[in-house]
Design a binder for these strands. Structure first.
Length: 484
RNA sequence: GCCGCUAUCGUCUAGUCCGGCCAAGGACGCGGCGUUCUCAACGCUGAAACCCGGGUUCGAAUCCCGGUGGCGGCACCA
C-alpha cells in the first residue's frame, strides 16, 4: 500500500514506556495504531521507550507484551521478535543517540547547560508569577566550547539542551487539522542528561526516523510534544511524519482516568472477567463510530470499517455499563465449551474436573453473566446445594403444608420417569399439565427453589435435566424435610 | 498564569466540510408494557441533547463574530 501518493510503505509504531502495567488508554492507542497499520497493509512495530532508567522495569515490558497478545494485537517487529530496524528497546540504542547528539553539539545546535535544578526552579516560579509561560532563560546557550569543556572536565553536573529556533511550528494533524505552536514560547529543552542518557523528546524523533516510521498515532496529551519533536526532525533534515492525536479517555467526572473511579490497567479487566474481544470492541467505540451504526464488531470488521478521519476530537468518558453490556453480548455468543476453557481462573478447582457439568451449567447461566467472574456465584448450586432458608420455598401466601404437599406430588411424578427421559422437553411435557390443575406458581416456584436454593435462577426443567433424576429427587426430599 | 486542544440526550455517538432530507437518528443506562414460577435474555415502547449571546440567511446543530465551560501540557517523566 502507498501512503497518500508518496511511495513509502506504511510503518506504524506503538512505543510504550515500561514504567507501569499496560494502561487501558495505551491499549486503545495501540488498537488504533494497529487498525490503521492493518488497514493500509503496513507494518506494525513495537518499540519499548525505556529511556527512563529509573522507572522502567522488565516486568512492565512483560506485562505490556502479555496484554497486547491477549488482545491479539500482534506486531511485525519488536524487542521479542526482532526485525530489520532493531534493536527495539531504546536502552539498547544508546550508540545511535550519542552519534546524533554529538552531531547536534558539533553543529552548534545543542549545548551543555550547567544550571542547577534549584536555579531553574526559581526561574520557573518567577516567570509564572509574571504571567509568562515558563521556559529556560538560555543562560548557558552562548557558553564557549572551551568554557563548557572545562566545566565538564571539572565534573560539574550538566545536561544537554537543544537550541530551539524561535519560529512558528505548524503541522497538519490527521484528526484535528492545522495546529500551530510558537516555539519561542518553548525555550531550549533538555534533550539528554548526557551523551549516554537521552530524553524522550530527543530519542523519539531519532528512532522514528531510523525505523522509517510514517505515521504517529498517540494520545492528545502528546500534542505539546509534537512541535519539539518536529524541531528535532528539522535540525537533522529528517523527512516529515504524519501525526494523529487521539482524544483522551476520561473518568466519569471528566478528569483524567485514574484508579479513583475504575481499574486503569488492562490486566485488571482480564482479572475481572472481561473477554479480550469485548475490550477491543469497546475501546474502538470510545471516540469512534462505524458509519452503519453496527456496534458489535470483531477485529476483522474493525479493520474494514475503521476510519481515522472519523475519530472524535473531544475526550470520551469510560462508560463501564456499556462495557458490561458488551461483555454480556460476547459471553452469550461464545460457545459454551470454549467458555468453559476461559472461565477456569474464575472457579473452584473441583468444578473444573467435572467438565460436562461445567459446560452444561455455563450453557444454562450464560445469559445471566456480565463477566466471567459472575459465574461462580450464579452457578454454585449446580455443584452443591447451598443451605437455604425454608422461606425461600414459599410462593406468595402459600402455607408450608401446601408447599410440602405440592413437592411430594411432584416427587411422585418425577420418580416415575425413566432416567433416560429425564430431559428438559420431556419433563416440561409431564409437569406443565399438572400446573393447569394446581397452579403454575404454586408448583413451579417451590420446585425451582428446592432445586436451586435461590430466589433467582434458570427454570426448573433446565435445572432438573442438568442435575439428573437422583439429585433432583434428593433435593426435593431436602426441601420437604425443611418444611416439616 | 501561559500555550494548545475541545463543546449534540446522563454516557458513547450520527448529523457539521457542501445550511433546508433533523419537529435531531442509533447504542448503553433509566422508565413502561409484553413474555414469564423467579432472575436473566428477548420484543415493543417512553422520557432524555444541538454550551451561551449576537450576526448572516426565506431558513442555522451546521456559516461568521464574541463569550463561557471542559481537558491536556508547561520536568534532568514518557
Amino acid at each position: 500500500m502507498i501512503a497518500d501518493g508518496s511511495k513509502k510503505p506504511i510503518r506504524i509504531r506503538f512505543a510504550p514506556s515500561p514504567t507501569g502495567p499496560l494502561h487501558i488508554g495505551s491499549a486503545r492507542t495501540t488498537l488504533f495504531n494497529w487498525l490503521f497499520a492493518k488497514q493500509h497493509n503496513g507494518r506494525f512495530i513495537l518499540r519499548v521507550d525505556d529511556t527512563d532508567t529509573e522507572r522502567s522495569k522488565p516486568e512492565y515490558e512483560q506485562n505490556i507484551i502479555a496484554g497486547l497478545k491477549w488482545l491479539e494485537l500482534n506486531w511485525d517487529e519488536g524487542p521479542d521478535i526482532g526485525g530489520s530496524y532493531g534493536p527495539y528497546r531504546q536502552s539498547e540504542r544508546l550508540d545511535i543517540y550519542e552519534k546524533y547528539l554529538r552531531r547536534l553539539l558539533d553543529e552548534n545546535k545543542a549545548y551543555y547547560c550547567f544550571c542547577s535544578k534549584e536555579e531553574l526552579e526559581e526561574e520557573r516560579k518567577a516567570m509564572l508569577s509574571q504571567g509568562l509561560s515558563p521556559k529556560y532563560s538560555g543562560k548557558c546557550r552562548n557558553l564557549s566550547k572551551e568554557e563548557s569543556g572545562k566545566q565538564i572536565e571539572r565534573g560539574d553536573s550538566s545536561v544537554i539542551r537543544f537550541k530551539t529556533p524561535p519560529k512558528e511550528v505548524e503541522f497538519n494533524d490527521l484528526i484535528r487539522g492545522k495546529i500551530k505552536f510558537d516555539a519561542s514560547l518553548i525555550g531550549d529543552i533538555v534533550i539528554a542528561k548526557n551523551l549516554r542518557e537521552p530524553l524522550y523528546n530527543f530519542a523519539t524523533p531519532i528512532d522514528d526516523f531510523e525505523m522509517k516510521i510514517t505515521h504517529i498515532i498517540r494520545g492528545e496529551d502528546h500534542l505539546p510534544n509534537t512541535p519539539k519533536q518536529i524541531l528535532i526532525q528539522e535540525a537533522f533534515n529528517f523527512n516529515e511524519i504524519k501525526y494523529a492525536h487521539l482524544p483522551l479517555i476520561l473518568a466519569p467526572d471528566r478528569s483524567k482516568l485514574s484508579k479513583r473511579y475504575l481499574e486503569t490497567s488492562l490486566n485488571d479487566y482480564r482479572l475481572n472477567g472481561y473477554l479480550p474481544e469485548t475490550i477491543v470492541n469497546f475501546l474502538a467505540l470510545l471516540g469512534w463510530h462505524p458509519e452503519d451504526d453496527q456496534e458489535i464488531l470483531n477485529l476483522q470488521e474493525l479493520i474494514q470499517k475503521f476510519n481515522l478521519k472519523k475519530i472524535q476530537k473531544a475526550g470520551a468518558i469510560f462508560n463501564i455499563e456499556k462495557l458490561e453490556w458488551l461483555n454480556a453480548q460476547y459471553i452469550k455468543k461464545t460457545d459454551s465449551v470454549e467458555l468453559a476453557e476461559k472461565i477456569k481462573d474464575f472457579i473452584p478447582e473441583n468444578w473444573q474436573t467435572k467438565k460436562d457439568l461445567l459446560v452444561k451449567t455455563i450453557e444454562a447461566e450464560k445469559e445471566r453473566m456480565k463477566t466471567l467472574a459472575d459465574f461462580k456465584e450464579l452457578a454454585d448450586f449446580f455443584f452443591e446445594l447451598p443451605d437455604y432458608e425454608p422461606s425461600i420455598l414459599k410462593w406468595q401466601e402459600m402455607e408450608n403444608e401446601k408447599i410440602a404437599a405440592n413437592l411430594k406430588l411432584l416427587r411422585t411424578e418425577l420418580e416415575n420417569i425413566d432416567g433416560m427421559n429425564f430431559n428438559k422437553d420431556n419433563l416440561e411435557k409431564i409437569i406443565m399439565p399438572l400446573t393447569e390443575v394446581w397452579g403454575r406458581g404454586e408448583l413451579l416456584w417451590p420446585l425451582r427453589a428446592a432445586l436451586s436454593g435461590k430466589r433467582a435462577s434458570p427454570g426448573p426443567f433446565e435445572i432438573m435435566e442438568i442435575l439428573g433424576e437422583q439429585e433432583t429427587l434428593k433435593r426435593l426430599d431436602t426441601a420437604i424435610t425443611k418444611l416439616s
